[in-house]
Structures are given as C-alpha cells and as structure tokens.
Design a protein around this nucleic acid. Sequence first.
DNA 1: AATATAAATGCGAATGATTTGCATTTGCAT
DNA 2: ATGCAAATGCAAATCATTCGCATTTATATT
Lengths: 152, 152
Amino acid sequence: MEESSSHSEQLRLHGQKITKQRLGILAVLEAAETPLTAQDIHLRLNLEQFPISLSTVYRNLDRMLAEELIVKQGFYNDKCQYAIKRNEHEHSLICLACRKVVTIDECPLEQFSRDLSRREGFQITEHHMELYGYCRECIRKEGIISNAPKNP
Amino acid sequence: MEESSSHSEQLRLHGQKITKQRLGILAVLEAAETPLTAQDIHLRLNLEQFPISLSTVYRNLDRMLAEELIVKQGFYNDKCQYAIKRNEHEHSLICLACRKVVTIDECPLEQFSRDLSRREGFQITEHHMELYGYCRECIRKEGIISNAPKNP
DNA sequence: AATATAAATGCGAATGATTTGCATTTGCAT
DNA sequence: ATGCAAATGCAAATCATTCGCATTTATATT
C-alpha cells in the first residue's frame, strides 16, 4: 500500500496534520474491498501492529467525512460504514448475503431531481440511494430465492 | 383522530392484538406531519395522558415494520424515524431546514434496477432513496443559498 | 359471563456504538 | 531547536435500542 504519499497530500490539502493514525485509516480504507465500520478499521490496524485508539478512529472518520475524503454508508445497518471516496458521485449495490459492494457510477436521479425540484419548489441539494439484492455468486452458492428483508 | 377502527382492522389483519398502545402509536403516526422517532412517539403519547413505555413503542414499531404497516426512514440521522405506510412504494423529499417531508410517488429506479440487475448479475430486491434540499418556504424565510450539509 | 392462555406490557437493567473530558504526545511553523 | 495548537489515548459518559422477567390483558373457548 504505497498510497501514503498521495494520502499525505490529501491530508495536507485539507489542513489536517499527517499522523500515522490518519495514514493508517486511509490505507486500510484504500485496501478494503467493502466499506468498513469504525470498529473494522480499528481491528485491522491493531492486527497490523498498528496501535490506534477507537476514539481516534471515530474522530478522524468524522473529520475525513467533513472534508469529503471518504463517504459514509450502510444505512441499512445499525452501524455506519465508511469507504474511500473515489468519484465525485456514486452509489452502491450491496449484496445482502456476502455484503459485497458494487459501485455504480451512473445516477438516474440527476434528471429526476431537476424535474422534481421544479415541480415541488424545492432546492434539492443531495440524495441518498442504495440498492440491495443478491449477487451472482451468492445466488449460486446459497440458492437464494427471493427473501428480501423487510426493514428499514 | 377517528382512524382507530381502520387501524383495528389493520392490526387484526396482521394477527396483532388490538391494544391501546398499538392504536395510540398508529394514531400518533397518522396525525404526524413528519416521520417521528420512537422517542417522539413516546413523548407525544405520554403528553396526551396516554402512558406507554418506551420499550413497548420500540417493540411495536419493529412489529409494524415487519408487517409493513409503517416505514422506517431518516437514515440521514443517527436515530431512525417512522411513518405510516400510505402507498405501496414511495420515497421522500425532505427539507433540511424544517424537516418537512414531501412524499414522491414516482420512482425512477424501477427501470434502472432492471437494467442494472441484468448487467451485474444481481437479483435486486429493494432500494433506498431519499432526496434532501430546502423547501420553498424555508428558502423564502431563511434566505437559504446553498449550503448542503456534508454528511453522510 | 367466567376462564385459560398466549401475547403484550412495563420496568429496569444491559448492550453497544459513538462521544467526550482531560492529561499527554506530536506535527509542524517559527 | 523551540513552542504551541492540534491530535492522541484512555476511561468515563451518553444515548438509542434491546432484553429479561414478572405482571397484565386481549381474545378464543367453555
């Protein structure tokens, strides 16, 4: 994970000090295949002989979120998940069985928002959208039929 | 709020006993202009001389959610909000200033989901979508320019 | 109408994620 | 090399939500 120099630049750009902890968090998120919870990050860093306190993880995630270095998702669960923000705008398709996340770059809401905005007299500033289902592998492996969970 | 008889029917239909507490929760949600948290509901019922315990509120919200009498939203915040489910499928446009909620009946994701499903090999079972912005009144009253909050 | 019984309730305690206060450490500008 | 604000670690606090269990209640059945 020799992303650290670009991470350093990012941090510097956003007026954040470059600490091992911050670089560690970004490196873990960079390497992750799926969005991670604060605790996931904490655990992974500590396993890598990279001691960090959980509150530092939380504090930095908040800060990075505010600076838009990362995104927060996983509204589906009780705990939030975080991921590196790779594009300006993206959505996720999440497998309910294995939690794999496929990133979707298109957004069908752009035009829709504009129309809605006009019709309702709202100034629409943002939206959240996540799609859920079962991925090919899980359908094959687990013979999933179609039991969508009910909530939220 | 003489909705209670239809609420009773709904409960009976879903195999739930008809209790004052359940009717109270449904009545409060029915009367609410915006989605409410469990605590909002608890508070309102107790103000109306309608004692109910908070755990009963939570338990019933879960049950009603499972039976699809209500919907859960408010992913935007840390605490969840609940509202009467009025249509089969609906989304919300939420004012960030006054929290007013406008219900949107169209859904631009139907076709999108089908295409995506084919392309990614996912069986898509559901989606979440909420739009945020500022309503006409709040724009006028507060002279809101365009300061979208950053997270999540 | 009285009864039985499973379901529902209330209460308080437990859980678990997130936040916070504060003393100590550390990055970085001077 | 020095100083100071910013960042960290730790433990304690917070706060929404869940759970255990004893008591009450809705409803089906005599």
